[in-house]
Design a binder for these strands. Structure first.
Lengths: 217, 217
DNA sequence: CGCAGCTCGGGCAAATTTCCCAAGCCGGAT
DNA sequence: ATCCGGCTTGGGAAATTTGCCCGAGCTGCG
């Protein structure tokens, strides 16, 4: 860590908005110990940039067009398990946070955070620690009744199938017919899936399903 | 206008993310002729800041919690018709663009734009010209040629705002609180939106919103 | 002026969601 | 073999939401 302080921390910035990247770059560079060595504007390029520059920390917005940011996390971590990834986004849904961590993220910071909190999170992640902003800790705490891992791992096969069809736009009756179940059973699954994933609304469920690749939009 | 060039252009930044504001500030200040004289993190404070600092240009993100950014535009313009407002957001829906201009915006630039395009737009707006980024011009052009308007064209401004928040994962109560409406009204809008768009389930609504660029997954 | 459209909300029956519960089944642990 | 735990399937009842109708205020427009 002392050598980290001496060398500084190299950062790969991944965000699809050029001016936002530029702004972050300036904020980070002004810190003295943070150096943006590369940028990427989509999930696909993120891994290439990671390979090429081996940054200490990847700062990435998971709400990007094209492939999900969660995919990018898995992609990078699968091939470089020591990668440190800090998710930096405006979303603060518990399901997303859990999905990001189980995909291999080291930290999760919202854009509502103070700049100082963001740079501190980058330093924490660079040291190998987990980091999250206060608001994220709060939503996780509220949510804190499912200690189990990946969002989809806690779902059974039937639940996943029903989630897929639901997120695809099917009505409860259609799902019941497709699967030869009673409407009541499908309703119960619907409820179960929501509680298991921590989604509070159907919209969050759809977003979750989409971010896990369960459905395409 | 020559005195504008001599004095520089004063800017009020309105965005709800502190670090994003800080980033923009640095990018703009680095131009030499642009000076950020004030910031606001919500629509309600925007007018107060405008009054206090009389900036040449207001740069404002319309996707903020609380009152709609469109409200803020109308608010400022109603009391200071000479105000120059540049909308700066990640959304690129034709309906939103048209709503912003008819609310009194002088320009509309997306965050996908190059930083140079953004600063040039600020300068154009400061000169009293209309400004928009290339992608916005493109969607407006497409929109004016399309015989069958977008699904979103049949929705009112409030409906679009509520659809955006809903698709983003907000609960009915959260939306009601954000927009200072009764829960009942939000429920009615929810229903209206469904019937107008023909969506049968909330999931279909989310997919529709996503495919129109109203929200991102 | 009148009409149309948007915004905002009340009302009320019907439907759905939210929880709690039970039973059958199956695989693994004891 | 037996028990435990998890998955699957559904019933039931209270709480909430939806579906649809309504009116009122406001604004812009012919």
């Amino acid at each position: 860590m002392s050598e980290v302080a001496a060398t500084g921390i190299s950062v790969l910035l991944v965000d699809d908005h050029p001016i936002v990247r530029q702004g972050y770059r300036r904020v980070l560079e002004s810190q003295g110990d943070l150096h943006v060595v590369a940028e990427a504007d989509n999930a696909a390029d993120a891994y290439g940039a990671f390979k090429a520059h081996a940054p200490d920390v990847v700062v990435l917005d998971i709400s990007m067009p094209g492939a999900s940011g969660l995919e990018a996390i898995r992609n990078i971590r699968a091939r470089s398990p020591r990668a440190r990834i800090l998710v930096f986004t405006m979303h603060n849904e518990a399901v997303l946070v859990k999905a990001a961590f189980s995909a291999g993220a080291s930290g999760f910071v919202t854009k509502s955070s103070e700049p100082s909190a963001v740079v501190n999170a980058i330093r924490s992640v660079a040291r190998g620690e987990r980091a999250m902003s206060d608001d994220i800790a709060h939503v996780l705490a509220e949510d804190s009744l499912s200690p189990t891992g990946s969002v989809l791992d806690q779902l059974g096969e039937r639940e996943i199938e029903i989630l897929r069809q639901f997120a695809g736009g099917a009505t409860t009756e259609q799902i019941a017919t497709h699967l030869n179940l009673s409407v009541k059973t499908v309703q119960n699954y619907h409820y179960l899936i929501k509680t298991k994933t921590g989604a509070r609304t159907d919209a969050q469920l759809v977003r979750l399903a989409a971010s896990c690749g369960l459905t395409r939009i």
